[in-house]
Nucleic acid binder design. Structure first.
Lengths: 160, 160
DNA sequence: ATGAATGCAAAGCGTTTGCATCTGG
DNA sequence: CCAGATGCAAACGCTTTGCATTCAT
């Protein structure tokens, strides 16, 4: 997770938005004020987020937005392969934006404080591809969550 | 997934039950008709199962059992590390029994027919352990789900 | 007898849907 | 114009909980 300047971020968001609206048009779907804000904020924030959290953020820009719209937009993003739903076992689905440059990452969850870290390991991905190929399948997407405990006893994660 | 004789299966169930009831006693919890049946069927069936499916199965032995009891028992099994909750994205949680001899397996889900297959790959596990160790963590449990498409066009899985 | 477990029904919670209204292309 | 999008509220499906009753120890 390297640093990213404001311009780079805006550029990335812009690219994603453009790709998204291209798909919308292909599918004969529309661009609306609400949809625009939701999608833009989703790409801008660029992290796994719950419908709830996204709604809260989006309402700062468009206060009268309904949660149904957020759910519908997230569903749309998933269908169009711009987001991946994730379940971390706390009862609500999180959505991870997919930006083309970054292959889909995996998660390491601290069982002490529930902090969620991201990682991306090529050797792991290679092995997965091999396993699935052996079974005569082709991976479309994966969900890898490692629940782990911090080795360092004095680690701040040792909250609970 | 090797074959297993009836005796072996019964023996495995017996072992698991014994371990479970030992823990119960340690925790000052009780054995009841309902709990016994649920836990026994859960270990016997020995596959990821939803509360719903388990209830249906259990009711063939104890018709008056309530679903709350099944949920409570599953929760107990999870707390005591005899089961792992899994979410495959279809809205309901499945529970996987943990039997000590078999390390926790992973899943390959066919995106065409939703069939869920299990696998266990040592190289994969090794790599995971290495990744997590690098981050100064120790894996407690993992959740790996690969959503894939069958390569064989004539495969019966190509249902949808 | 006493704390735990059960069954039932009701409540909870995140998510989806029906419908009247609005809006973008 | 008119299919698609929105907002609201109601419905949904899975899961949890409150409570009176039953049961294991």
């Amino acid at each position: 997770m390297g640093e990213m300047s404001e311009e780079e971020r805006e550029e990335r968001v812009e690219e994603a938005l453009q790709a998204f609206y291209e798909r919308l048009q292909e599918a004969g779907l529309k661009s609306t004020k609400q949809r625009d804000v939701i999608v833009e904020r989703f790409f801008w924030l660029d992290k796994h987020i719950s419908a709830d959290e996204l709604l809260e953020d989006v309402r700062q820009h468009q206060p009268r937005i309904g949660y149904a719209t957020v759910y519908r937009t997230l569903k749309l993003l998933v269908e169009q392969d711009f987001a991946v739903p994730k379940d971390f076992g706390d009862g609500q689905t999180r959505y991870d934006p997919i930006h083309n440059q970054d292959p889909q990452h995996d998660h390491l969850i601290c069982i002490d404080c529930r902090k969620i870290m991201e990682f991306n390991d090529q050797q792991l991905n290679d092995r997965i591809q091999a396993i699935v190929a052996d079974l005569s399948y082709t991976v479309r997407r994966k969900k890898i969550e490692l629940y782990a405990e911090c080795d360092d006893e004095s680690c701040p994660h040792k909250a609970s």
